[in-house]
Design a protein around this nucleic acid. Structure first.
Lengths: 244, 244
DNA sequence: CGCAATCTTGAATCATTTCAACATAAGTGG
DNA sequence: CCACTTATGTTGAAATGATTCAAGATTGCG
């Protein structure tokens, strides 16, 4: 669990991409209204539901997902502390997917009217929030590449590289391990695979001495090799401080 | 080829989602600087390249794509007239993918400094542009669902439903047919399949009397059946006029 | 008209799924 | 704290959807 400042992780995310003035940080702080706990496995926003606030995740893991009538489910994004899970809901007004907590979570709400205020009074801060939604889209594109063109092993390796890198940005991972409290079922729903095949794929990653994922924790033995296998290039995560 | 107003299609896209004031339309118009022709198969923006303007497509078809070292290529989005193909480049400053014209195209450039102006002086218009990038992300998510969980037939059917609907919004399709000038190779790169399998899949769609795609044109025989097969629900395209 | 690009088809192969059984871990109540 | 129960993970064997390879047909372009 992270220090009491609810925007600490968000600030790590933002300052890894651009500079923020004290005034902007204050405006961001003023935009928050309430803190809420969400329990594991709770679907706290349903596809299509009308939204009036956006949700900043401060602790835990959340996923965006869509269901198919045959019971198939695709997770389209994973979120960790410091991510806005539905900032796009600000202009979309309802979502095309649901949001579920994969672990017990803490979130902070930001009413849309306060975001309107930010777009009116803090254009640069507004652009940074816009950037965050563009970053989400960049991750979606990389997942499209994985789902469309990488095989199971590469796909899994890529996911663990991405999450590791994102965790490092917000101080939740060291160079070779991090907590990743998902079941293999949930990993399968991210990767477009079956649980059974995820199990075999993880065994293969272990067998090749690249990494291990067990007991909700990822341990990377050979980061270079893992990234090489996945063709992982963190450029799509835009971890560069520059004017935006 | 569309009427001479370079933002005609864009306005159709926007007014299908919200109201625009005359003042905002004028501001949009003032943001445009130059018109450019792009020839078919030209990669006109390369992954990683520094950007100083965004590109509005006024005629033709463009794709976003990423290559893998083994020669595999994934198209992560298709764009038609009225789409900003790299509006996200405004805050990202460089792209995580390349852009290629799939047909001869016409585009209009909007320098980033003029977009900054819009964020400073026209917050509502800025939110609408932000909306457009969120809409892109929504389409990416739907493609993730297709790539991860739909089989070849469903995936193809879904793509043709989506493009048909988007074409209708900008007046480029009637209810049961539209021009779709892609090769099967390019369709395969959208769907995460091989060319060979796309050929077989199209044969199956034809055999089931759902649709036909040949000679760069899509003809839909049974829209209901096609949408049913694809589990197509246009909600993710947000075709609803409301304050954003 | 002729050549190159695109599309089609069949047969063999391969990656992933399905099904089914079992093993292990985790959570709950006595 | 153990016993029970359910959730999660593992393995093998058979089935399947998609790929690969190779050849031929069709279309479109210069």
């Amino acid at each position: 669990m992270r220090a009491d400042d609810p925007i600490a992780s968000l600030l790590l995310n933002l300052t890894a991409r651009d500079e923020l003035s004290d005034d902007e940080i204050a405006a961001l702080r003023r935009a928050l209204v309430s803190t809420k706990a969400v329990s594991a496995d709770e679907v706290f926003i349903h596809e299509g539901e009308e939204l009036t606030a956006s949700t900043l995740l401060t602790d835990g893991v959340v996923c965006r997902f869509k269901d198919l009538r045959d019971g198939g489910r695709q997770i389209s994004a994973l979120h960790i502390a410091g991510d806005f899970v539905d900032l796009h809901g600000f202009s979309l007004k309802r979502l095309d997917h649901s949001l579920m907590a994969l672990t017990p979570c803490r979130v902070v709400l930001v009413p849309h009217e306060r975001l309107v205020r930010i777009t009116e009074r803090h254009p640069h801060l507004a652009r940074l929030l816009w950037f965050l939604t563009n970053l989400d889209a960049a991750m979606h594109r990389e997942w499209e590449l994985s789902l469309g063109r990488r095989d199971a092993l590469e796909r899994a390796a890529h996911l663990f590289c991405e999450i590791g890198t994102r965790m490092q940005v917000v101080g939740l991972a060291d160079n070779d391990s991090y907590n990743f409290p998902l079941t293999q079922q949930e990993v399968a729903e991210c990767l477009g695979l079956t649980t059974v095949h995820v199990s075999r794929t993880l065994r293969e990653l272990r067998g090749r001495e690249l990494m291990d994922f067990r007991a909700k924790r990822v341990t990377i033995f050979d980061r270079k090799g893992l990234e090489e296998l996945a063709e992982f290039n963190p450029a799509y995560l835009y971890i560069e401080r520059r004017a935006r």
